[in-house]
Every structure is written in C-alpha cells, then in structure tokens.
C-alpha cells in the first residue's frame, strides 16, 4: 500500500473541502472494499478522507411519506431499522443477503453503492483489465466469466456490479443525493451506475470529488408486495450469481404495476423495464411472468461459461413474481 494521508472531517462541507476535485483523494466509508482494493494495489490514493463522522447516519421519514437514509448509515443498522423493515422489507432483505454480519456493521450505504466489481481480473493487478487500466484489454471474455455479465456488456468489459442493496434500490426507484464541488444534485436509481461501453473505468456518473450524502426512498406503494431473492453458490456470505428484486401490485388477478431489477447480470443493477412493460395490465400468471422474463432476457448476450445465468435469471424472476402473486 502506498503511504497516504488520513483526514477525518466532521461535516460534509469539510469533507468536500478536503477533497476538492483531486483524483488522488478518495472518500473512505466502512472500508470493506476500499481498504481491500488498496491492499491489492488496485487503487492507490495519496489521501483518504474518512467520511464516517461526516456523512449523515440517520434514517428519517420524509414529508412525502418516504424515507431519507443517510449515506453514513451502516448496512447492519439499515436492515434493522423498524421503518425500513416495515416499509421496505425487500431492501432489508437485500442488505441482509449481502456479505457477513461483520462487514454489514462496517459498510455504509454510500460505500455499498460505490463498491467495485469482484471480477477476478480487475482485482489482480498482475493481469490486464480495462476497468483498472484502460486500454490493456479484458481477459475475462476468453477466460473465466462464469459469474460475469449477460446483459449490457461491451467488448471492453463484462464485469458485474456486486451490490445486493443496489438491486433493491434500483427496483424501488430510490433517489441518490450527491454533493460535490459543483453543488448538490439528485440521481435517480438505477441511473447512478453506468454501462461499461468503452469507458469501463467509470462505474458511476459521479464527478471527481462528489460525495453521496443520502438515499431517498419513495413512499411504499399501497398494495405493493416486494421480495428480494438471490441465487448463490454458498448458502451465505457469497456474492449473487443472479438476484431479483421485485415489487408487484396485483388487482383482481391483473398486474396493476410492478418494478423489477436484476442483480449480478450487468455492470449496473439492471432495471427490467421490458419485463415491467410486458407485465403491466397482464394476468398475474406464471405464463405471463415467463413471457415477461423472456422479453427482458431477449437482450441477453451470454458468454460460453455464463449461459446458464439466462435460464437462472428467468427461473428466479418467474418464481419471485409467482410467490408475490400467490402471497395475496
């Protein structure tokens, strides 16, 4: 690890001030991914600005009936919060499906959103990787990509975003509050993350020096039922191979509305808009759920070793929707 300076501001303003627009300065949240990446040599900031005492760390109801979750809220606190469990159980489930109890006690909401891919090539600095070192190539395409993207990937990158929480936030349509040298703005999920295109080194739309300060959840939809489910190799403490977050509103056997996101299939938490469109107004039956899944996955471009993820995503999506429809 390269020697670095460490600052721990107590307000967001101080954090922004300490950072400016330097790319040599990085914000430190829980450190569960950043410290690891620094040890691996993947990133080597000259300065760390620890924002865990600066970023808001409370969960508050908004006037509109939603929730504002401070970016400094630890994942463990988020999943345990009564307002989250009551209004957004799917979000609590997604958070609890991620990592381990220890890591959830450390990781912050902001840091969780900004974690990097766990692609083996990205994490190994002795190998090429367009995301880590633009222009060096992507060995995953010809190498091992069993756990990598089936949707939205490019010639230059087939990485997936590893967060479970972000999948739930994408389905919920959360708003990400950002502050930076250029002022404050709001980014709606899933718009925070970007597809790799020919700039896979850019995971998100954030500009240098910008800091996530909060995530705002819209009010729970009356009659909406939600669920997060994750298929994985190990029973616990392992990344998703495919995950599904879905909110379903059924009225008289017909889908009134739905919001669906898939995880571990793309460079971003993948909002399944084609499936949503196919389902709105359709009968809430397994056949229709299957048709909707097919509509979404028609765009899938699996690689030889992750072809199974198409069937897995389809089955998992159908099952989650069917369970939600049955639970009425």
């Amino acid at each position: 690890m390269r020697p670095f300076a460490y600052h721990r501001p107590s307000t967001v303003a101080e954090a922004l001030e300490a950072t400016g627009t330097s790319t040599d300065v990085m914000y430190l949240g829980g450190g569960t991914n950043l410290i690891d990446l620094m040890r691996l040599g993947v990133v080597s900031p000259g300065t760390l600005v620890d924002v865990t005492r600066a970023a808001p760390a409370t969960v508050e109801e908004t006037p509109g009936g939603g929730l504002r979750v401070g970016a400094g809220v630890r994942n463990g606190d988020l999943a345990a919060h009564p307002l989250v469990r009551r209004g957004y159980p799917m979000l609590a489930e997604a958070v609890l499906a991620g990592a381990s109890g220890q890591l959830r006690n450390m990781a912050t909401v902001g840091g969780n959103l900004l974690q990097r891919t766990r692609c083996a090539y990205f994490q190994d600095v002795s190998k090429p990787c367009n995301k880590r070192s633009p222009g060096t190539g992507c060995p995953a395409r010809a190498g091992d990509h069993r756990n990598l993207a089936i949707l939205g990937h490019s010639d230059s990158c087939v990485a997936t975003h590893p967060s479970d929480m972000a999948v739930a936030l994408a389905a919920l349509g959360a708003q990400v509050h950002v502050e930076g040298p250029g002022g404050a703005h709001v980014v709606p999920m899933p718009g925070l993350h970007r597809l790799p295109g020919d700039e896979p080194d850019r995971d998100t739309v954030l500009a240098p020096g910008e800091l996530i300060t909060a995530v705002e959840l819209p009010p729970p939809r009356p009659g909406g039922r939600s669920r997060f489910r994750k298929a994985r190799d190990r029973a616990s403490f392992s990344f998703a191979v495919v995950s599904v977050a879905a909110v379903l509103e059924v009225d008289g056997g017909v889908v009134r509305d739905c919001r669906i996101a898939l995880g571990a299939v793309a460079h971003v938490p993948w909002r399944a808009e084609a499936a949503e469109t196919a389902l709105r107004g359709a009968p809430a039956t397994e056949e229709e759920f299957g048709r909707a899944a097919d509509a979404e996955l028609a765009a899938a471009r699996p690689l030889p070793l992750n072809r199974f993820k198409v069937a897995l995503a389809r089955n998992l999506l159908v099952r989650v929707l069917a369970d939600l429809a049955e639970a009425r």
């Binding site: 469990r85 009356p222 039922r225």
Partner: peptide
C-alpha cells in the same frame, strides 16, 4: 448483542399481515 437488540437476519421471518403494507413471508434459502 444483535439478536438482543432485535436485529433480523436473512432467515428471520418477516412481519405478518397488519404490521405493515406487506405480508409476504419468504424463504431465501
């Protein structure tokens, strides 16, 4: 300590009908 504080895990049952807008209990496992 986490259990004493009422923190759920992924296998903790969800709240039943009436406790919130949702009733769907589900097993992830």
């Amino acid at each position: 300590a986490e259990a004493a504080a009422g923190w759920p895990s992924l296998v903790t049952p969800r709240s039943p009908p009436g406790a919130g807008p949702e009733a769907a209990g589900c097993s992830h496992d």
